[in-house]
Each structure stands twice: as structure tokens, then as C-alpha cells.
């Protein structure tokens, strides 16, 4: 994809985000991203809403067409497809793990985790570390087919290390580039590349 489409893709992944966040997620220099985002806004592909940029219906359509063109080879690549299947397996485990981070099962009932039980939190964080390590080779394989995905490895590692150092809001806080936030963006990115729809 050229830089313009890459910027639009960044908006699709980041959702209602300012230029800096869009630039970071797709790896464009900030000035270049700002220029492209303003250009795309002028041509009606984006709107500059109060919380950040968003795709217009026209922008969405143009981007979807570009995905099918740019990623046709990847969509037919068996190795990439197999790596994606491995991502899906880890994804199921990750969603359960985040749920376990947020809830406590007490006497058979689920209640909100108030983070008063240090042993529970430490055990879930330990599992997150193990999941991350087992996922690293999968992400490396995916990035072998699409090098810009490498960016997610750094962002996931950053979130994990902050959480491990005690800033546990980096596990799942939707307002930060937490592990879950970055994971979700990666998932969204892969779905767009492969032209699939998310299922729950």
C-alpha cells in the first residue's frame, strides 16, 4: 500500500485517533501523516471529528478495495493463513486471560476483580508473560509475510513490561496502548489484510 492508503489504514485501526497515534500504528513520520490525513479529509475520505480522524463511507469503500488489491497474494498464501490460524488459537486464550484478569470466581460466582488478591493477579500476569513468549514466534512468522506488523511486537512488549513492573493498567485499559488494546488492533489489522469478519 502507498503512504496515503497506509494513513487511511491507520485511521481504520486506531479509530477516532489524532494524527500522532495514526502515524505510530502504521510507522509513518508524523509530518507526513498529518499532510496525508489533511489531504484525505479535503478529498472527503476522512472526517476530522472532535475525538480524532474517522473514515467516511467513501473512504471505507476505497480502503476495502485497496486491501483486496494490495493483499491478494497474502490472502492466497498458505503459510500466512496457517500463521493466522495460530493467532486465532492464541486469541481465544488471550480473551480468556483478560477475562480472568478482570474477574474473580468466588465460590462458583463471578465478581469483578478488585485486585485485592495479589496471588491471583500475579498468576494471571505470569500467564500473560507465557502467552506473550509463545506468541512471539507466531508474530514473527506473520511479519515475515507483512513486515509492518513488526511494530506490534514492540508495542506488545512495551505493554507487558510496564504491567510486569507494577503498572497493571497496561494489561487491559482501553484508554492506553495496553496489551489488550494493541492485541485488538493487531487482530483488526489481520482481519482487514485477510478480508475477514470478526466473530465472537
Amino acid at each position: 500500500m502507498n503512504d496515503l492508503y497506509l494513513a487511511l489504514h491507520g485511521v481504520a485501526i486506531k479509530k477516532h485517533a489524532p494524527a500522532a497515534a495514526v502515524a505510530a500504528v502504521v510507522g509513518l513520520p508524523l509530518a507526513r501523516a498529518e499532510e496525508l490525513l489533511q489531504q484525505a479529509t479535503a478529498s472527503g475520505r476522512l472526517v476530522d471529528a472532535q475525538s480524532g480522524y474517522a473514515l467516511t463511507p467513501a473512504g471505507r469503500m476505497i480502503l476495502d478495495n485497496e486491501y483486496s488489491r494490495a493483499y491478494e497474494d497474502l490472502r492466497n498464501d498458505a503459510a500466512f493463513g496457517a500463521s493466522y490460524a495460530r493467532f486465532e488459537r492464541v486469541n481465544t486464550a488471550l480473551k480468556q486471560l483478560i477475562t480472568d484478569w478482570q474477574t474473580l470466581t468466588i465460590g462458583g460466582q463471578q465478581v469483578r476483580n478488585d485486585h485485592s488478591n495479589a496471588a491471583h493477579d500475579a498468576a494471571v500476569l505470569d500467564r500473560l508473560g507465557a502467552l506473550h513468549e509463545s506468541f512471539e514466534p507466531v508474530l514473527a512468522q506473520l511479519a515475515g509475510g507483512l513486515p509492518r506488523l513488526t511494530r506490534y511486537a514492540a508495542a506488545l512488549t512495551n505493554a507487558l513490561e510496564r504491567a510486569e513492573s507494577g503498572a497493571t493498567q497496561w494489561v487491559s485499559d482501553a484508554r492506553l496502548d495496553s496489551y489488550h488494546t494493541v492485541w485488538f488492533e493487531l487482530h483488526e489489522d489481520l482481519l482487514r489484510v485477510l478480508g475477514r469478519v470478526r466473530e465472537e
Binding site: 475525538s51 483478560i98 485499559d173 482501553a174 484508554r175 465472537e200
Partner: peptide, 27 residues
């Protein structure tokens, strides 16, 4: 997410305890 941040509650038709809506709402 930008709408979830400011609403009073979130209700959905699909998904279970590990759905996106569930994870973000709890958070």
C-alpha cells in the same frame, strides 16, 4: 470504544463473557 467511554451501560446481541464488549466494559 469512544461511545462506550461516555455511555451509562452497554448491551449487545452477540458474544459471551469474553466478547469485546464484555472485556472493555469491565475495564
Amino acid at each position: 470504544v469512544h461511545g462506550m467511554l461516555v455511555c451509562r451501560a452497554i448491551i449487545t446481541e452477540q458474544g459471551g463473557a469474553t466478547a469485546h464488549a464484555a472485556l472493555v466494559s469491565r475495564d
